[in-house]
Design a protein around this nucleic acid. Sequence first.
DNA 1: AAAAACACTTACAGCTCGTGTAAGGCTTTT
DNA 2: AAAAGCCTTACACGAGCTGTAAGTGTTTTT
Lengths: 213, 213
Amino acid sequence: MKRIAIVEDERFMREELSDLLKKAGYAVDEITVFDDVAGQLLSCAPDLILLDLNLPGESGFSLCRTLKRQSSVPVLVLRADEYLTKPCRGERLLARIRNVLKRFEGRGNLLEGTGYLLDRQTYTLYIQGRSVLLPKNQGKLLEVFLLHGGETVPKEELCLALWGTTEYIDENALQVNLTRMKKTMAGLGMAQQIVPMRGVGYRLVAKEDGNEA
Amino acid sequence: MKRIAIVEDERFMREELSDLLKKAGYAVDEITVFDDVAGQLLSCAPDLILLDLNLPGESGFSLCRTLKRQSSVPVLVLRADEYLTKPCRGERLLARIRNVLKRFEGRGNLLEGTGYLLDRQTYTLYIQGRSVLLPKNQGKLLEVFLLHGGETVPKEELCLALWGTTEYIDENALQVNLTRMKKTMAGLGMAQQIVPMRGVGYRLVAKEDGNEA
DNA sequence: AAAAACACTTACAGCTCGTGTAAGGCTTTT
DNA sequence: AAAAGCCTTACACGAGCTGTAAGTGTTTTT
């Protein structure tokens, strides 16, 4: 069974989360004393750490860096408003967790989409018995979408994935890459599509085939 | 259980083969009457056909073409001297059979090497948890080697795989591609190496790490 | 031991394909 | 209807794969 550690100071949120994870079959460690958090985490050796960024004392951000330096445990960073108590949000979170865990298991590096698999290192797409090689940028885009499990992905994050910087965003370049991605997705008959969230970003959602009059 | 049909007129060889396959857990159909062979084969609907090229009556070659036209059953062509009764040869043959069958099963297109897998469509190589994308030509070469399961592969066949023709062989171009392939194999720490068979071709064999004084 | 045949290496130039740029059209919102 | 956001297409640059060429090793043969 996989161990997940929760680092979240708000008690209500923490217990809510803990419940969700336990029901999903994970072993959960809750951090309740916010002193030497890094030490506590390392000693309980979880497979994944859920980290809220607004912590008392040591900032979540510096903690994250400390962890990255001292171990290779994957850390999933949450902002408090990202996983409100709505049940559908919970599902999304669980999807992300599953993906991250799978990645860090030995045979990792295969991301799961609806009806296909994506290899994160080569951007090979496995779909319907075939396998296709995606161009790098399209692979990166699909990767980010899958890591967000159907959630809206802001443009800055897409740019970050493509060019490693969120500083200067070339709206148009991103746009072109998305267009190309759509075309190959259509060509492969994928059951998902990219829909724009005006002014914010994009989501990858199940495709509704036009069965109207 | 997988069905394999044997088309071989020499009785001794045929029964030898049949034994080998049955021990390996396949269902075996032996063709003993060499009239309307194609019809017989189609009616027993095997998953794989083992075909000896020197047949009486209809030549093995034309039979092969007939089969390819009328069905998509994979045909493995053997020359009589290719699988003499030596036990190690038997192993090689079984390896080839396993590979061909795997390819034609739904999830097919993954070839098995010692310690790695090769995707035949994208030439993605899965090794030690990583996955790497091979350049097309190197992928084709590795593919041919694996399909021959450690057997010597003649140069003409390598050229055929690379350029689709066996007519004009550019020895040097082949050579260069092999060199490149060796380099990437070394870089990936693969436990196999390519050794030349003077004047004939090349084989892919287990690597002996130099543990001498 | 010299020659011939074969095997290997390296550097270079052409080409393919993915990518960013640019310019303009379309659609939704105000 | 004007503005803001989104989309499409065509073009040119560049990275990486490939074949060519020329030359060096290595093994076999004479």
